[in-house]
Design a protein around this nucleic acid. Sequence first.
RNA 1: GGGCCUAUAGUAUAGCUUGGAUAGUACGCGUGGCUUCGGACCAUGAGACGGGGGUUCAAAUCCUCCUAGGCCCGCCA
Length: 559
Amino acid sequence: MDFREKIGELLKKQGIQGDIVLEVPPQPELGDFAFPCFPLAKQFKKAPNAIAADLVLKIGKVDFLEKVVATGPYVNFFVDKPKRTEAVLRDITKRKDTFGSHPIGKGKTIVIDYSQPNVGKPLGIHHLGSTVIGHSLANIHKFLGYNVVGVNYIGDWGTQFGVLLSAYAKWGDEKKLQADPVNYLLSLYVKYSAEEEKDPALHEEAKAWFKRLEDGDPHATKLWTMFRDYNLSTFKRVYKRLEIEFDSFNGEAFVRDKMGPIIDDVKKKGISEEDQGMLIVRMEGDLPPCILRKSDEASTYALRDLAAIKYRFDTYKPDKVLYVVAQQQTLHFIQVFAVAKKLGFDNDKLEHISFGMMRLPDGKMSTRKGKIIFMEDVLDRAVEDVAKIIQDKNPELKDKARVAEQVGIGAVFFAYLMNDRIKDFEFSWDRMLDFEGDTGPYVQYTHARACSVLRKAKEEVSVDANLSVLNAKSEYELVTMLERFPDIVASVLHDYKPHILSQYLLRLSHQFNEFYHDCPIITAENDELRKARLLLCDCARQALQNGLGLLGIASPQEM
RNA sequence: GGGCCUAUAGUAUAGCUUGGAUAGUACGCGUGGCUUCGGACCAUGAGACGGGGGUUCAAAUCCUCCUAGGCCCGCCA
């Protein structure tokens, strides 16, 4: 039953023209849906209040509506609550894990490029944004029927490798490397960056090393392979912990043998030109040119991105390719997408999903300067803190370590995903390690609480319970909140903003807890009411679980 | 110098796409609630739309100028 649609038809019959936009009144007491009459004032040459009153009289009595009243300039519709409750809860019990999905992506393929850490540096907390946004967008697309290709475009090529190779040639120590490869490589990188500031010649040396690597020098290649393998295995360990799986780890190095055709093509199409030894493509307007090849003939990341675009179009035949990459690279993607268009790719399919900077209270993070917070350290501390709380509040809990992991990671993910991705994010331990109020653990707690009630009820939830007994305000408001879930999920993809779902889950949790406090479930005054409330409780539980899952967050049954 | 983004209580933020009723939430602060299903909870109070113009019956929301902050602007990614 779509009440919106039916009310729309009703208004059309009264001679209302154009798109009928129904609002939801700010207070539930005002009604379920509202029709503002302001825009009609000119057409009918009457005051909006009079028009509203008039419409109420004309509409009269309708079977699916409880009543229709004019409140000032608004026509407020009160729907038949039992019918609405019935429709919503039956849908959830029928759909279960798939509640909220609709197959709008069926037959479509989407490539999502996210996380993309750089080899030579450990995963830092600044990778959180791309990783969790990309992951949740991948989950939601899958949920809506898309064929999703999750690509982790590892930064395993480029001048930064020249830096590592050059540094290793100068100060390398194989024993230290083997003892702790990731941290050792990081220390080499940091040291080289510091020296480079004093002696610019080192920059040229690094570029030269990268050129050797790109030209296939066996020694450079051997070291590169070793460095890459060390890092990749630690990356994979972290992703496993985060329960994130990629379909492809094809990074920049993967496309290094696919750049030739791009060079040939830009030359053939005459869109490139040589400038001071570089190969560039001029942009329209005031945009700076896109550099494809440096004067030493080494590739740039723009060229590699173009090769990756060709590979992805050829291999996956995508309907859309999303680049979940920080806002700083906006210009880069404008340029690359523009060149892609000149090369004949449909660049409407390419979209940069940008997000704000992760910053420290005292400024920018900088791997070069060693100002970096490691992802694993944040996870460890979050999990550790959660473990203490569990020890304190629920010492009998089974599987404590696993639950602590789920809740700790849930807190970190949610802390990032709850806000609009476009805003800069100032990292603070307090923010990451907060488990009360508007947080991931609050939503998880609400879910666990619902599970607890269902467990203690010691009876199966009966799907044919009589729902007309659910008349309390908090019951009905929980139902209307649940009703919104499918639209919320779909709207995340409208702007690729997972925080819409996070915010919704907070509101749903608040609404559930209000219901929980107002309405005894197991100890309800009669059997009929208990069965109906158990069903409602189970439906809320299901929606919370589905929603958290889409954000990549676990829903433990106890915590 | 040019371009992109951001600005909402003490703090962190939602609402801006598609203008509409009393600007929502959390932390912190004040008050209250466990003989009832989990207090990682609930109820309640005080507290906010950067500034100026404009459009409109109506602006946090649209336009414009200004201010402040962040990011980017040919051989890093």
